[in-house]
C-alpha cells in the first residue's frame, strides 16, 4: 500500500519536513511491505485498535545473528566495552534442554507485554506503553534509576553506560538513560516492518512474523490460531505480544 496519496498536500510543511521523511518514503517506494501495514496518516496517533506483535518460529531460527546485526545497524546501538555494560536490544539465546540435550537458538528482545512490569514500576512514568501496545522509554523523563531493569523478567533493557555520539536522527540515545527494543516504532509508523523481521525474512529463514494481533485476518493472527504458541514466563501473566512457536 502506498502512502503518498494519503499525505496532505501541505507544501510548506513538506518543504520543512525534508530530509528524514523523504528518506523514509524512498524505502517505502522500494516496497518491502510484506504485511498489509501502511503508514499512519500524518497527525494521527497510534490506535488501540491495533496490537502489534511478533511470532518467532524457533524451528526456523538458525544459529545466526542476522536479526541482531540488523537491529544494531538500524538503531545505532553498539557496545565498546565487550562486557555486560554494553547495550543489547536484541540477543540470540542458545538453549540446551537439560534432560534431552536438544539445542535451540532464538532471539529475545523486549516482548512488549500487555501488562508491562517496567511501566508499573517506573517512578516518573518514563517507561510507557503506546496505544498500539509498543512499550517504550520516554527518555525525556528517564532519570536512570534502573528500577525497570530490576522488574523486567526478560532482561530486555539496557542502561546506557557511556557517552553516545552519532545517533540516528530517528533513534535518539543518551548516556544515563534506559533503552530497549522499540519494535522499530519509527518504521512501523512509516508503514514498514521492524528491521529484525525484515532482515530475517530477506535471509530466507522467515523465522519472524510481524503483524497486528487484533486483526483476525493478519498473517500472524491466522498463524497463532493454527499452532500452539509459547509466551515466555507465562506464569507471570504479563501477556507478552512477542510469542514463540516450536519451542
Amino acid at each position: 500500500m502506498s502512502t503518498s496519496n494519503k499525505q496532505t498536500a501541505d507544501l510548506a510543511r513538506r518543504r520543512f519536513l525534508s530530509g528524514a521523511v523523504a528518506l523514509g518514503s524512498v524505502s517505502i517506494a522500494s516496497g518491502f511491505t510484506l504485511y498489509t501495514a501502511s503508514a499512519r496518516p500524518k497527525g494521527e496517533p497510534a490506535s488501540s485498535k491495533i496490537r502489534w506483535g511478533l511470532l518467532i518460529d524457533t524451528g526456523k531460527c538458525e544459529d545466526c545473528n542476522i536479526c541482531v546485526e540488523a537491529c544494531k545497524t538500524e538503531n545505532g546501538w553498539e557496545g565498546h566495552r565487550g562486557n555486560l555494560t554494553d547495550p543489547q536490544w536484541i540477543r540470540k539465546v542458545g538453549l540446551t534442554d537439560k534432560r534431552t540435550g536438544k539445542k535451540q537458538s532464538l532471539p529475545v528482545m523486549c516482548l512488549h507485554c500487555e501488562y508491562p512490569p517496567c511501566v508499573d514500576v517506573c517512578p516518573v512514568g518514563a517507561s510507557m506503553k503506546r496505544a498500539d501496545g509498543i512499550v517504550l522509554v520516554d527518555r525525556h523523563l528517564c532519570i536512570g534509576c534502573r528500577y525497570c531493569m530490576m522488574a523486567c523478567p526478560y532482561g530486555a533493557r539496557s542502561f546506557v553506560h557511556e557517552k553516545v555520539t552519532n545517533q540516528k536522527p530517528y533513534m535518539p540515545r543518551g548516556q544515563g538513560t534506559v533503552e530497549s527494543c522499540t519494535l522499530c516504532a519509527h518504521r512501523i509508523d512509516d508503514g514498514r516492518i521492524p528491521a529484525c523481521v525484515e532482515a530475517c525474512t530477506k535471509s530466507g529463514r522467515e523465522a519472524m512474523l510481524f503483524g497486528d494481533l487484533n486483526d483476525p485476518q493478519s498473517a500472524i493472527s491466522k498463524r497463532i490460531v493454527q499452532v500452539s504458541t509459547t509466551k515466555l514466563r507465562a506464569d507471570l501473566g504479563l501477556e507478552p505480544n512477542v510469542r514463540y512457536v516450536n519451542f
Binding site: F16, L17, G43, P45, R130, D138, A185
Partner: peptide, 20 residues
Amino acid sequence: ETLRKGVRGNPYSLKSCVNC
C-alpha cells in the same frame, strides 16, 4: 505527541529543526 502518542509528521520536530 510523537513519542507517547505516536503522532508523526507534525511540523515542530527537533529533527526538522536540525535538518533545516
